[in-house]
Amino acid sequence: MSVEQALVLRGVRYRYAGADRFALDGVDLVVRPGEVVGVTGPSDAGKSTLCLVAAGLAPGTIAGVLEGSVTVDGIETRDQRPHEHAQQAGVLFQNPATQLSGTSRYVWEEVAFGPRNLGLPLGDVVARVEAALAALHIGHFGERDPARLSGGQGQLVALASVLAVGPRYLVLDEPTSQLDPQGTRLVGDALAGIADTGQTGIVLVEHKTDLLAALCSRVLVLGGGRGVREGPAAEVLADAGLHDLGVEPPSAVRLRARLAAAGVSVPEQAFAEAAA
């Protein structure tokens, strides 16, 4: 039997230890290499929990009860230890400052933190660090002090240190929520670059739907721990009911709605191009 090459969540329910309700209550999601799947929804819809489960941190590191199955290229995450899972699905959080190890003098060393933890031969460590820095076009950061980077730059270094561990899937939990517009653009471009290589599957959790519109092929909208909409990004994000689900539609969609209300009709094609 051939194993599906994908990060797959099937009927996933998750309840934190000490909580009485399920934060995730039946979610299905499939992400294949080269694909960017957006996840959005109001706060408390289970977005962050989805990240922890998909990244294999729950229930291993974050205690709780997991029902359903989470598999990466056919392997159940609950059978794996944290460092094994880290090599299959990497996770990036909101705050660059807390994600950097805070033990490195240079960006280069910071990115080497993960590969060194794996005990790889020095040559492999060097190759992985160079590759990760190159993939994000930040090779020139190598000798800078990680503590003296801007928010966007710090987030790129954090992303590079996750990439250097070698995951085929990336789970990003609102990676731009603490960044200014410039930092957001920096990270957005870097993600687009990774997706274009076709090697890595990305789950992008965001409330900034503009970013989702720009990057994602498919979008899942969460509400109350369940998927309430799923489909091609252009379709889901243009859904007139999006606002009622607690999600701010992308600016292009809002602009079009305003124009339509004012009696101006713009061909759909123009928006598809603007979004891409």
Binding site: Y16, A17, G18, A19, I62, A63
Partner: peptide, 11 residues
């Protein structure tokens, strides 16, 4: 400790 979430403490 009283101000920390019990869930976090239990970990």
């Amino acid at each position: 400790l009283a101000g920390m979430s019990r869930r976090l403490i239990a970990r």
